[in-house]
């Protein structure tokens, strides 16, 4: 089972290492991890995608909560939430493939952010399914380099 944990942490030296340690010392897997400061002073948000059975996920949640630098842990399981990920994809291009690449980028509402005689660099944002989908279409056309941010997530507000 996959689970996204979003944790608000003190922006202290060593926090990332404490979180990473928690996973490695207990043999839990981190699929992706993303950290950046948020708009409150000295706080950061980490978004961690991990996998395990219910018991392991429960332990992970508790262990994250137990860290002294953790202010808040949110689990994205049953509640409706938005998740996004961004990817930068550098494509080999030539006269034969350019048009096709552009068409795919267009369908996925991506952007070409850098161009050279034999490459395009594409930016695309969406949920992980969308990123996976564009990658599978671009793959046969020759991906040169790929960078994904890993997920960030937020709970949807109640629409009433």
């Amino acid at each position: 089972m996959k689970r996204i944990f979003s944790i608000t942490v003190e922006n202290e030296a060593g926090v990332l290492s404490r979180v990473a340690n928690l996973f490695s010392a207990r043999g839990y897997n981190i699929e992706s991890l993303n950290v950046a400061p948020i708009n409150e002073e000295n706080l950061s948000r980490m978004t961690i995608v991990t996998e395990g059975d219910e018991a392991i996920l429960e332990q992970i949640g508790k262990q994250l909560n137990k860290l002294i630098d953790t202010i808040k842990v949110t689990e994205f399981g049953d509640v409706p939430f938005v998740e996004r990920e961004m990817a930068l994809i550098k494509m080999h291009t030539d006269l034969g493939t350019r048009a096709e690449v552009l068409r795919i980028v267009d369908i996925f509402r991506g952007k070409v952010v850098d161009v050279s005689p034999d490459s395009y660099t594409i930016e695309v944002t969406g949920d992980s399914g969308k990123i996976d989908a564009i990658l599978s279409l671009l793959e046969p056309l020759g991906i040169k380099e790929l960078a994904r941010t890993g997920k960030v997530a937020m709970i949807r507000e109640n629409k009433k």
Binding site: A13, G14, S17, R18, N21, A25, I68
Partner: peptide
């Protein structure tokens, strides 16, 4: 600090 991170409740520099 790095070495004792996993055997202390917390540590400081």
């Amino acid at each position: 600090v790095g070495m004792t991170r996993s055997c202390t409740k917390y540590n400081f520099l």
